[in-house]
């Protein structure tokens, strides 16, 4: 428990250092694009795959559970849309990204730490946290929402393909379901969650990477801790955000 509080304190002071004394504008911009490429573009394929298949599964599950004749067929589209936008895309995809991006970021920074590259930055007079971590956080905060919107779209396409191929509903009813009872607020809610998760994933992973101890196995340990802690942080903050928005 004491350990946890100490960690959170150290994490907070790291966040402060990340946002203080930013580097030259041109340097920051170049780093930001590097990170958007590294963190965001590299995740497109896994997000696409996950989304199409999960969309398909949600649609099939919904269809197979609709025993009651009172439920209209367009329920399939409606349920697929709500689960995708409210939980699947923002939360589940971010959990997947916590695994991929979190371990990448922690091991990249951890390796730089153990090979003294971070010391090298500091010696030169560079604020290593500002230089390394800030563009990562900003890159994720900017690009994760794009990824998630992309995921929502593909998940709905996956659901459509599933109902079409299995003949459970027509394209018209599916699309009608998707469009019924639609609220723009749901998307806002999903994107706010995404931004919070993006921040948590990258900052927590950076924290574990930056405070990696010296030694060959330590980088791996940091990466594991990063994934576990950021996943837990996502689940806990998801609970509170859901309460705040939906109630």
């Amino acid at each position: 428990m004491f350990q946890l509080i100490a960690n959170i304190g150290k994490y907070m002071s790291m966040i402060l250092a990340v946002f203080s004394k930013p580097e030259k504008g041109s340097v920051f911009r170049a780093r930001l694009f590097e990170e958007i490429d590294f963190i965001g573009i590299n995740s497109i394929i896994i997000v696409a795959l996950m989304s199409v298949f999960m969309g398909g599964v949600i649609a099939l599950q919904t269809a197979s559970n609709m025993d009651s004749p009172w439920l209209p067929e367009y329920t399939i589209g409606y349920i697929t849309r709500s689960s995708t936008i409210l939980e699947f895309s923002p939360t589940i995809i971010c959990l997947i990204l916590a695994g991929k991006v979190g371990s990448n970021v922690a091991s990249e920074i951890g390796t730089m730490k153990t090979t003294e590259q971070i010391d090298a930055l500091e010696i030169m007079g560079v604020n290593s946290l500002g230089y390394l971590v800030l563009p990562k956080i900003m890159g994720a905060v900017i690009f994760f929402p794009i990824l998630i919107v992309f995921s929502m779209g593909l998940s709905l396409v996956g659901g459509w393909l599933a109902v079409l191929l299995s003949g459970l509903a027509s394209t018209e009813t599916y699309v009608f379901g998707i469009r019924s009872f639609f609220e723009v607020g749901d998307i806002t809610y999903a994107l706010v969650k995404t931004v919070v998760f993006a921040f948590l994933i990258v900052s927590i992973a950076s924290y574990y990477g930056y405070y990696t101890k010296v030694g060959a196995v330590e980088v791996g340990k940091s990466a594991t801790k990063a994934v576990v802690s950021s996943s837990i942080a996502i689940l806990i903050s998801n609970f509170f955000l859901t309460q705040m928005f939906l109630l």
Partner: peptide, 23 residues
């Protein structure tokens, strides 16, 4: 303070034990 230190650090070159090149 931080600013004065950075000014000295700009005058320091360091070669690290493991080279510490940015890979």
């Amino acid at each position: 303070d931080h600013k004065e230190r950075v000014n000295i650090r700009k005058e320091i070159g360091m070669l690290f034990q493991g080279s510490a090149l940015f890979d």
